[in-house]
Simulated scan of single mutants.
Amino acid sequence: MKRLFSFMAIVAIVLASNCSRIPENNDPIIGIWYRVEVINASETSKQTIRQEWIFNDVYLGRYQKYNGSQLDFKTDFSWVVDKGVYTISYPGTDMTKNVVSMIESPDGMLLEDVKGETLAKRE
């Protein structure tokens, strides 16, 4: 009788584990996107600000902001897509949501906001 219960428990575990597969996400936004700004700090020096958005396949990501080579700020974000429009949210921060679309340009793939301004470029 113990063997029967053990066998039934093993069968139940195998069946339950096969039912919980996560669907594969092949969204084209997955990867690293960046924006670089060069600011004149003074007449003789320039300051480089680099922002990175790293999108992963479970609708999450990491945002990082570098001032020169120094990491200035980093936070996690979540993203959703609806009919080609991506909404990027930064929970736990005062950063506003980004609503962008992916477009192809001669410079490569870009994330463009609703005003037509470029948020980031694919790395």
Rank of each mutant, 00 (worst) to 15 (best):
M1K: 08
N26A: 05
A16Q: 00
L15T: 08
I22M: 10
F73I: 06
S45Q: 15
N25Y: 02
G31Y: 04
S89E: 10
T96G: 13
V11P: 02
G31H: 08
T93W: 10
S45G: 05
S20A: 07
S6E: 00
L119K: 07
M102N: 04
R3S: 07
G116W: 09
P91K: 03
L110D: 01
K115S: 15
V38N: 13
D94Q: 12
S69W: 12
W53C: 00
V38I: 15
L119H: 09
K74H: 09
T96N: 13
F55H: 02
L71T: 09
K97H: 08
I103K: 15
I103E: 15
E43N: 11
F77E: 03
G61I: 04
W79G: 00
S89R: 14
Y86L: 03
Y90D: 00
A41C: 09
D107Y: 11
T87I: 08
S20T: 12
E112C: 09
L4I: 11
W33E: 06
E123V: 10
D94S: 13
Y59A: 06
R35S: 15
W53S: 06
S69N: 14
D57H: 05
G108L: 07
Q47F: 08
E37G: 01
W53H: 05
P106V: 10
V85I: 14
E37S: 13
S69V: 07
Y63W: 10
K74Q: 14
S6Q: 07
L110W: 09
Q64N: 11
Q64V: 02
I30M: 03
D82F: 11
Y66D: 04
E52I: 07
K46N: 15
I88D: 01
D107V: 12
L60S: 10
V11E: 02
E24W: 00
Q70H: 08
V99W: 01
K97R: 09
V38Q: 13
A41D: 14
Y86N: 01
A16T: 09
V99F: 01
Y59M: 09
M1W: 07
A16K: 00
F77P: 04
Y34D: 04
T48F: 11
R21M: 06
A120G: 12
S89M: 08
Y86M: 05
I13D: 01
R50S: 15
I13L: 14
F77A: 05
I103Y: 03
L111D: 09
D57K: 05
I29H: 03
E24V: 12
P106L: 10
E43A: 15
I49G: 02
S6W: 04
A41T: 11
G68C: 04
Y66A: 05
P28H: 03
L110T: 03
S105V: 09
V100S: 02
F5V: 12
R122T: 00
K2M: 06
R35C: 09
V85G: 08
E104Y: 05
Y34T: 05
E24M: 03
K121D: 00
A9S: 11
V36S: 14
L119I: 15
F73V: 02
C19I: 03
N26T: 12
L71G: 07
T87R: 08
L4D: 13
V114H: 11
